[in-house]
């Protein structure tokens, strides 16, 4: 009996060790995606900041630094706004590759993610 109890406790401990976690500063965008019948968008900060400084998107392009504050839509992107400033087939691949951005699991809530010890500030 004690063995069973101990085993359960240990199993729980192992399960409690953080498992799958998003990369620090990944952003989930699901304001309209799933309602429109596509997967939520996962935006990886780490990938983009290797290639562009923050100021490109947050100054030139004008993205507000708060997940959910930018009313991004596909029509705008195709006109060269938002992600479409680069994802136009010239600077980066074009919008025909839907799945590359619309890559999230169903039901994800919009917001900034990443399993850091700080857990992310409340205001986000």
């Amino acid at each position: 009996m004690r063995f069973v109890r101990l085993s359960t406790l240990c199993l729980l401990l192992v399960l409690c060790v953080p498992q799958a976690e998003a990369e620090y500063a990944d952003v989930v965008l699901n304001r309209t995606a799933e309602a429109a019948g596509v997967r939520p968008v996962i935006y990886p900060h780490w990938f983009h900041r290797m290639r562009f400084r923050c100021k490109v998107c947050h100054s030139e392009l004008g993205f507000v630094m708060r997940a959910g504050a930018n009313k991004i839509d596909m029509a705008g992107i195709m006109e060269g706004k938002f992600c479409g400033m680069c994802h136009n087939g010239e600077i980066a691949w074009n919008v025909e590759h839907c799945d590359r951005c619309h890559s999230g699991l169903p039901g994800l809530k919009s917001g900034i993610r990443g399993g850091d010890s700080a857990g992310g500030p409340g205001y986000w």
Partner: peptide, 27 residues
């Protein structure tokens, strides 16, 4: 770095996993 298909965000069944760069390779 956790692989994309195991990060709890990306859908392992989506086409993205095949195309996207893995954080572990890039970083």
């Amino acid at each position: 770095w956790v692989r994309l298909e195991a990060d709890g965000l990306h859908d392992p069944k989506g086409g993205a996993i095949r195309d996207l760069q893995q954080p572990g390779e890039a970083l």
